[in-house]
Amino acid sequence: MLRLIASRLVAAIPVMGMVAILVFLMLRLGPSDPALILAGDTATPEAVAAIRAGLGLDKPLWYQFLVWIGQLLSGDFGLSVFSRQPVIDMVLQRIEPTVSLAFTTLALSIVIAIPAGVLAAWRHDSWLDRLIMTFSVLGFSIPVFVLGYIFIYLFAMQMDWLPVQGFTPIGANLPNFLRQIAMPTLALSFIYIALFARITRSAMLEVLREDYIRTAQAKGLPESVILVKHALRNAAVPIVSVIGIGFALMIGGVVITETVFNIPGIGRLVVDAVLARDYPVIQGVILLLSGVYVLINLLTDIAYILLDPRIRY
């Protein structure tokens, strides 16, 4: 296990190196110039040139790259072109809302989707199966912003149960955190519930056809034991894979949910940075996210081993 962790962490270094080079080149070789945007609509070309020089954007590409890599190696992700705030501080300010939303969404999705998928597989082709799959199709089909507006209309505007928008850190005020995270979690969970339920159902259906399940049934084991202990555990690998991918997507930024519910997360940070061509922020966030993806993949692989001892790397 330790060898796996060590080898994956070592393998992450060239991956992140490649990401760094690609992101840097894609931003610099495209038609973009943060100085022009920073200078504003009515700025004169001379003012734009002066700002460009002040930011070091008039230097050769190789020089800018070496400066950035040098900063990275000393743990410095640079400063935002616009706010002059350290990129790492900006990411840390924005990571909590995103991670909080990802965890609550993941928790709610797993709690609902896995039992639903198991039930659908258990009662294959029954009304229950069809009902669960119908909800699953709906979950895939309704865009998250539509759900968001519906929930805001129902739970905030009509029933007055929850606030419309905003985010309070969990450490600052737990009740506020729960009230504000409830609707975005519910809205974002729909698609993940649909996804996890479908994967669980198909994985379970495959396992339920295996001989050892028939043997367990012949032995007279209770159905709950067969479903959970024998079937679900053996069907878990593809489910865990999809959960891992889903979690990575959530961390990568759920910009629509963050926008509809005014959650100041990573998604909005990235979109704002891209629209403003804020090079250091885009580079920093993408690099950090690539690290997070490597970590999530590693955790997924560890989960495989724990769930299925036959798996070796």
Binding site: A156, P163, V164, Q165, G166, T259, V260, F261, N262
Partner: peptide, 18 residues
């Protein structure tokens, strides 16, 4: 000063007194 990215959400937040 708060920046709410979505216009409809801003309208709702104003109506609800947020």
């Amino acid at each position: 000063w708060l920046i709410i990215g979505d216009a409809q959400t801003t309208a709702n937040a104003l109506i609800k007194g947020e």
